[in-house]
Design a protein around this nucleic acid. Structure first.
Lengths: 247, 247
DNA sequence: CCAAAAGTGTTGAAGTTACACCCATGC
DNA sequence: GCATGGGTGTAACTTCAACACTTTTGG
């Protein structure tokens, strides 16, 4: 957490968070809106801000995320540092920085993080300089402030790579779900269709899900069995990893 | 490269380089020595220094590596940012910082990079504050200055992971080599034995090596065929990647 | 002739891919 | 009864792991 010693903003280092969520519209990313200047997503940015000078990087990412969106207790994984000297120099970005930063011309290196959250459990609430916090389907994002589009692409790449060796979904799906939810999630992340039977076989073999022996109700088709994650196996595979999801 | 604008050191951001080499003694890492204070490797550190305020991160890593070791034209890959507020606060490290830094108490975040080089082509020459630049077998490194041991472990992890999806060796072996060199290289990086026949089959199927139809001479055993990398296939697989090396 | 490393094939098991039909439900 | 998505098995193929002996050279 934040030490009490200095507590002074470091004008040279920031953190940005790529928060992924998932729902019936596919993979979403959490963006904040600053006052509209240009096109549809050009006024949107990843939640991010300067860190404190005595603050651990991971702590800073959690603090900034909380300040801008209200989200707490999220496990953030580092993507890396982005530090092109020109990353803040688009004219509309400069104008915006002048309105919120003490040293708007300072060259800032950002440490980016990403995370996966269950959209139903985490309802973002904009605050601080965020006018609004919104979920946007990843495939609809075409442009973002600063170099944030590039950071988003790096996050996606890392997420896709993670998918191959670790289970995923625990933080993206509600507690109870049906296998086609998980199936759609994997397809959304990978951006391509996966064979239904092969997907189910693989998931079952991993042992990360177990059926509640209950069925959906009220659906206009054959009701599906309802599942939950087997937390023990899930955690174990998170730690140990496996070789290859097989797709 | 380095812009001419400001050219002022950024006292809050540094870069550190993990340079791997390979020879008959296995996988090596390039370290610089500062004047001896404590145990066998405690006075050793990764080559690294503060960056300039107007300098791109990748450029900074290349510059610092050159300044401390003379190595140039090396492709460095980012590992990530390391920013614990305590990372510079071991007593012997503080003492050393006081002797070389203008603001020795400044909290510094470092962006770490790693690379693979052919030890025969790159002979490091210590300069700047490096008293000496030495290759040390990775498995003999037990402790390093600052948080550099942790950075080394992260580099190793990333290297092992890279091994699964991309060819490796072009920058670690001499132009001509024998298959058992490559075999030993993979074993060194993974830290475990690999079956000889399976290894050869896999490498051959990748198509990254081709025989020169020449044999070793002067060896006290059956002479091996001499190989070189097929640069075209190698580059292609570097870009495209493959699923799994299979070990 | 001995020591040393090179080079080579097979087999059983496991994993991967592709593919089509019937089922249970709401309307 | 129709539309919708749920749920299931197999066959051909590829990949993987394990394993032992002969060859060529220098000394």
């Amino acid at each position: 957490m934040i030490s009490k010693k200095m507590h002074k903003l470091n004008p040279k280092i920031s953190t940005d968070c790529v928060i992924f969520g998932f729902d019936e519209d596919g993979l979403q990313v959490l963006l904040i809106e600053r006052k509209p200047i240009a096109g549809p997503t050009e006024n949107k940015a990843l939640p991010g801000d300067l860190i404190f000078d005595d603050e651990d990087l991971d702590d800073a990412a959690n603090r900034v995320l909380k300040e801008l969106t209200g989200l707490t207790d999220i496990f953030l994984e580092q993507i890396g540092a982005f530090g092109s000297p020109e990353r803040l120099s688009k004219p509309e970005d400069k104008k915006w920085l002048e309105s919120v930063r003490q040293y708007p011309d300072e060259r800032v290196i950002t440490i980016a993080y990403y995370s996966l959250v269950n959209k139903n459990l985490y309802q973002p609430q904009a605050s601080s300089f965020a006018q609004n916090a919104v979920w946007v389907p990843v495939e609809q994002v075409e442009d973002l402030a600063f170099d944030h589009f590039e950071i988003l692409q790096a996050a996606l790449k890392q997420l896709r790579s993670k998918l191959r060796t670790q289970p995923i979904g625990f933080n993206l799906l509600p507690e109870n779900f049906v296998l086609s939810d998980l199936h759609k999630l994997y397809e959304s992340i990978l951006g391509r269709p996966l064979d239904k039977r092969n997907f189910r076989r693989k998931i079952n073999k991993l042992g990360i899900v177990e059926s509640l022996n209950k069925k959906q109700t009220g659906v206009p088709h054959k009701p599906s069995l309802i599942y939950k994650f087997n937390e023990g196996n899930y955690e174990r595979l998170m730690k140990e990893g496996y070789d290859n999801f097989g797709f």
